[in-house]
Every structure is written in structure tokens, then in C-alpha cells.
Design a protein around this nucleic acid. Structure first.
Lengths: 136, 136
DNA sequence: TTGACGAATGTTATATTATACGTTTCATTC
DNA sequence: GAATGAAACGTATAATATAACATTCGTCAA
């Protein structure tokens, strides 16, 4: 770091990254976060990844494993049971929660003796808007 | 390709990759596949990825998105609705199918007008064997 | 106040995963 | 046998992620 440059509190980077995620309104990669963030908030990849890790722990962001990309969380609770419907045409993502789903997975785990820590549920397909556009 | 070298039918690479996946008995990366494959079957990354793509299309292998790794399929049918329970301690993977789950996701999709093409369902946790080992 | 220490942060360099792109090969057709 | 085009190959490089180390800063004992 250049001498005399103020050190940033890590929470500050988390804020910047979250702001960028929210502006994006779609999943973006860590490197997109870096290039889309305010010019006065340049950061190296590990800094971005650490900020993301924090945000995910805090329930403010999610990683979409099938895209290697990140989104701001749009729900307040149930951070661990969320599912995502990803439109492969327009890239939009719907975040949702299904008690049935969580229950089914919990039951299966219990019956098999699997200690469930986290679940990744991602659907790929076409959102209603794109479906309609296709029909024209 | 070196001149005079016999060209391999792409299906042949798929066979080699599948053999390697089956031997591994756990998820392995594309690069592990390359280095674990028979010495007489050297292949460049795109070749390995193409073979994997074929195998996945044919229902003979799966990609585990949360690991960026691949496994041989252990079920014959329902290739698209499979779920995976991944042990974060030993790396083992259980592949399973839950009608409840598929139904719940199908229902949600239908009700929202989302055209579902594929689903990724991956659980992370600890397998029964590792759970027991922990208790000691 | 000062120095020792540890935790947190920042950077460089590099590992890992994946694909764009140009070339070669081979089957097909003439 | 030459022309053609589709499929498959590898080189080179892009994109994603992290290891390893250096720096900073707050805290606490002296």
C-alpha cells in the first residue's frame, strides 16, 4: 500500500461491494464487482473475495455456484434455505424459499444420518418475461 | 497435433474420461482427470471438457457446481432431477433422487411461469461415517 | 510514552478452472 | 483424386480464486 494512504476498515469494503451488488440487479462476478465499484474504492481480488465472504456470512449476499457469481440477498430471513431461479436468457434471478423443499432435504438428511450444513439449490431455465418474448 | 499421430474419435476420449471418473470414486476436477488418465491418453483441457460435456449430455456424469468437479453418474434414470450430498470432511458424495423435491420445484416453476430446464441441488455437510468419527 | 504483540488488512504473485480461436483431420461429394 | 465442410484438436489465454507474505493499527504492559 502506498505510504500515507489511509487504511480502509474491512467493513467499508463490504459496504462498497454490497452497494455494487445492489446496483447490478443481477449476478456479477467478483471481477465485475472490482471493475464496477466506485473509482475511489479500488481493491485487489482477495479484498473483494473477503468482503463477499463477510457479506455471505452476514446473510447480505449469496454466491450462485452454477454461475460463479454473486448477488445481493433479497430476503431477510432463512438465508440458508434459499433457492434461486436463474433465467438463462436474460440473466435475471428470482430468490425464493420453499418450506416443502427445506423439509424434504432435512428429512432425507436425518434418515441417512447426513449432518446437513448448507444447501445449494439453483434452477436454470427461462423467466416468464423471456418465455413470452419467445412466443412472438 | 503432431503429424502422423492418429486422431482419436471423440467418443474414445469420453470413454477414457468416464473410466477415470469411475476409478476416482469421488468428485475430481477436469485437470485431475487429465493427469489421472492413462498415460497413452494424454489430452488438452478443451478435449477433457468436451468429453465431460458429452458424458453429461448422455447422463453418464454430473458436474458438482459447488466444487467445480465432476463425478460418474451412479443412477440410471432421472438424470436431471438428481441431488447430491457432499461430505466436506472426506469428500464422498451420495447421489439421490427425491420425488417430493422434483415435484416441489416443478410446482413452484409452474406457478411462477418459469420454464424449468435443469436444477442443481447440492447439500454440504458430514456423511454418517465422518459424523461417527467425530464423536470419538 | 514506548515498544511488543497479535489481529486484521493489503498486495503481489500464482494456482486453478474454463474457453476463444485457429488448425488439422476426415468423411463426403463430385 | 481434389474440393468442401463439419467435427475435433491443441495452443494460447481468459476468468476465477487463493496462498503467501508485508504492512498497519489497536492494545496492553512496562
Amino acid at each position: 500500500m502506498r505510504k500515507g494512504m489511509r487504511r480502509r476498515a474491512s467493513a467499508e469494503y463490504a459496504d462498497i461491494v454490497l452497494e455494487t451488488l445492489r446496483k447490478a440487479k443481477r449476478p456479477i462476478s467478483a471481477y465485475e464487482i472490482i471493475s464496477m465499484s466506485r473509482a475511489d474504492a479500488a481493491m485487489a481480488p482477495p479484498t473483494a473475495y473477503r468482503a463477499l465472504e463477510r457479506l455471505i456470512e452476514m446473510g447480505l449476499a449469496h454466491k450462485l455456484e452454477s454461475l460463479n457469481a454473486f448477488v445481493a440477498c433479497s430476503h431477510s430471513a432463512h438465508h440458508n434455505d434459499m433457492a434461486f431461479a436463474i433465467c438463462d436468457s436474460c440473466g435475471s434471478v428470482a430468490e425464493f424459499m420453499l418450506p416443502t423443499l427445506a423439509k424434504a432435504l432435512g428429512n432425507w438428511s436425518r434418515s441417512k444420518g447426513f449432518k446437513l450444513n448448507a444447501s445449494t439449490i439453483e434452477l436454470h431455465g427461462e423467466c416468464p418475461t423471456c418465455c413470452k418474448a419467445d412466443q412472438r
